[in-house]
Write a protein that binds this DNA or RNA. Structure first.
Lengths: 194, 194
DNA sequence: TTCCATATAGAACATAGTGTTCTGAATGCT
DNA sequence: AGCATTCAGAACACTATGTTCTATATGGAA
């Protein structure tokens, strides 16, 4: 006979309940207006329990962000350099498609700010690393690499949030195609050889 | 003999003090962490006074945003259609350059969210209006116009915030040149005729 | 089963911030 | 000199946070 819950499972279950509650409430009324009391009421969890798991509301929100690191780790190890500029966007669009609600809570109109900075930091680092690795050393770029990295990040995150805020009327593959169509001309023109 | 202050001037002065205090404090510690008490202490203004002028902290922040409407109004009336996609960005970059501190408070890492949505709404509406007016009716766009509008907005706002967060090491004209270089290839390829 | 460590619920509390209301003082205009 | 406007500051009710306490439930091991 299998036990229903072990202590570990109970913890995981509680944390998941809390995250789900935060995500739901954020979609409903916006991250700012969600109170800890709302969260624990919705999750049927005691106040003590909440603060034994998370430092505060933001800490809980960030815990929902951890899986994204795996996506980037996979990309670093698996995606060949010459494809990495397109693979990352497809992977993230698909990731967002699979987990619509959390992503909407994290990136939608309601909750920019906290997570966004972290996401930006991660993605910008990834893009810069990839561009530096693949850009031919001899050539002089037509504009600062940092500017170009910011450009790629902006286009991607802009399309992502637009997509999420408009209830995902296109597929992840379609969005990635748009991302590619939009950025490819500038890449070819400004970073020849990449 | 000229009077030092009239009632109207006093009001304007008080409002300006409060806005300056909010901007300074936001740069110092981030918008979220600035309290009304901080603001009125810094501005040497009574609590009553604050709430007689503004509904809350956000209302005060938005009051610093009003001048931007004039910029868009000017663009609509003065900028010819075929130039409007480049003129808007230069005008805004210059506007941001003139008022670095308020812009940093409004768009910098510290305070995305509140104002950003309003700014996005305004600029997206402007871009869509201009693109629809200038796009040849007969041609079928290679991707949805909304996606392209989002693209233009994302690139611009991304460059703007990057610029502000990095203490404006380039000139407004230089940034506008980057914006143009980055977006022109996609425009030529995806919206031929615009 | 019995026992123990761990998770949990919930109440009470101190602290901090918000927005309102009241009183009284200062300021500028006529 | 008198009046209306604008201000400062205190007191207050309210909401939310994060901590501490006590007590209860639960799963795993003897």
């Amino acid at each position: 006979m299998k036990k229903k819950t072990s202590p570990d499972r109970q913890v995981q279950r509680t944390r998941q309940f809390l995250l789900n509650a935060l995500v739901d409430l954020t979609v409903e009324k916006g991250y700012e207006k969600v109170t800890v009391q709302d969260i624990i009421d919705r999750a049927n969890v005691g106040r003590t329990t909440f603060y034994s798991h998370f430092q505060d509301k933001e800490d809980l929100l960030l815990s929902g962000f951890e899986k994204l690191r795996d996506v980037f780790d996979d990309l670093r190890s698996e995606s060949p350099l010459e494809k990495s500029l397109w693979d990352f966007s497809l992977a993230l669009f698909q990731h967002a498609e699979q987990q619509r609600q959390p992503f909407k809570a994290l990136f939608g109109k309601q909750a920019r700010g906290v997570v966004f900075s972290l996401f930006q930091k991660t993605l910008v680092a990834y893009l810069k690393e990839r561009l530096q690795a693949s850009f031919p050393k001899k050539k002089q770029p037509l504009l600062p690499l940092d500017v170009f990295v910011q450009y790629l990040f902006s286009v991607f995150s802009g399309l992502l949030t637009w997509w999420l805020d408009n209830d995902i009327s296109y597929s992840a593959e379609q969005m990635n195609e748009y991302y590619r169509k939009l950025t490819e001309p500038a890449i070819q023109k400004l970073l020849p050889g990449v």
